[in-house]
């Protein structure tokens, strides 16, 4: 987490559905928090891990943020922490809002949400309404009991279609997106299967029509990396390198900058000297002897086959 992080107090817990809890996070002294735009998310420290949650409250309320958290059975512990351990009055460390899913200007919007993917869409609906732009929402989920924000959405009128899978099957994306319309933007958030289906159904739309947000980075889903430790002989510090994150990124976050260029082990800029431990080479520069010798490694891609490495940094 960074110096611009915020320490916020949990001032409300609401049940949005059987498996979704809403948390209101307020500034301790009721001062204004950094503003945000629809589509923005914050990083939330959940015990040992950091998770991203979309902001889904009212932007006019400046002293607090609202997030909605789905309990994920196979999640990596973040959602369980927020569901089970966080109580009213607790403090949470969160980042300033960032937006990777900004609502760009359009004449008309088609919103598609699946499950907890409704969260970034909720403030977009308010924004589109405020701008006087026509929109529709198709909102799918497993069953009504799992789908958050149904009451709030029902108040918005007939342009909202709540379509639980156990009642109406999967969302009819092909029919919904059959006729491409220039000037219309499609915003979709939800599980990977929904995003992929939407990408396919919107393939014949003009470039730039479709905007999506993925909750889990693609690369993390297939990662088979193991965690290991890196000790820096000259800096005297020690760092855990978790699966899916490179040595160089962990060091950069800790304020240890190592020059790097290509990011994939082809240019040799980040080459580092190994003093102890056995590197697992993933670069495309070192020859067989150098690999066996293990004196040099490219820390943008290579990892460790021993539990720890000591680097001359």
């Amino acid at each position: 987490m960074r110096t611009t992080d915020l320490e916020l107090v949990v001032t409300a817990r609401d049940r949005h559905s059987a498996s979704v809890v809403g948390l209101t996070l307020s500034s301790p002294d009721a001062t204004d928090l950094p503003p945000w735009e629809p589509g923005a998310h914050i990083d939330v420290r959940c015990g040992e891990v950091v998770r991203q949650y979309s902001l889904c409250g009212d932007r006019a309320t400046r002293s607090s943020y609202h997030i909605a958290v789905l309990r994920e059975a196979e999640g990596r512990g973040g959602s369980a922490y927020l569901h089970d351990e966080v109580r009213l009055g607790d403090r949470l460390t969160v980042s300033a809002p960032r937006n990777n899913f900004a609502l760009v200007e359009a004449e008309r919007y088609v919103f598609i949400a699946g499950g907890i993917g409704i969260t970034p869409i909720v403030p977009m609906l308010a924004e589109a309404t405020a701008l006087g732009k026509p929109w529709t929402l198709d909102y799918g989920g497993r069953s009504r009991s799992t789908m958050a924000f149904q009451r709030e959405l029902a108040e918005l009128g007939p342009q909202v279609s709540v379509l639980p899978e156990d009642e109406s099957g999967l969302l009819g994306l092909e029919a919904l997106l059959a006729d491409p319309q220039s000037g219309t933007k499609i915003y979709c958030c939800g599980p990977a299967a929904l995003l992929n289906a939407t990408e396919k159904a919107a393939a014949h739309w003009p470039p730039g029509s479709l905007h999506i947000e993925r909750f889990v980075p693609k690369a993390l889903e297939v990662s088979t990396d193991r965690e290991f430790e890196v000790r820096l002989a000259r800096a005297g510090t020690s760092h855990r390198i978790p699966p899916g994150t490179s040595i160089i990124d962990v060091l950069a976050d800790a304020g240890v900058g190592v020059p790097s260029s290509c990011g994939v082990g082809t240019c040799g800029t980040c080459e580092s000297v190994v003093l102890e431990g056995v590197p697992e080479h993933r670069d495309s520069i070192l020859n067989d002897e150098e690999r066996a010798e293990g004196t040099y490694m490219m820390i943008c891609v290579s990892r460790a086959s021993s539990p720890a490495l000591v680097l001359d940094i």
């Binding site: 900058g257 260029s261 290509c262 994939v264 082809t266 240019c267 800029t269």
Partner: peptide, 21 residues
């Protein structure tokens, strides 16, 4: 500038400029 080296002048990835060094 502390992060001047984050520039993309040499490209990146597999086609990162061979002669950069």
């Amino acid at each position: 500038r502390e992060n001047a080296g984050s520039h993309q002048a040499f490209g990146g990835g597999l086609h990162h400029c061979l002669g950069a060094p």
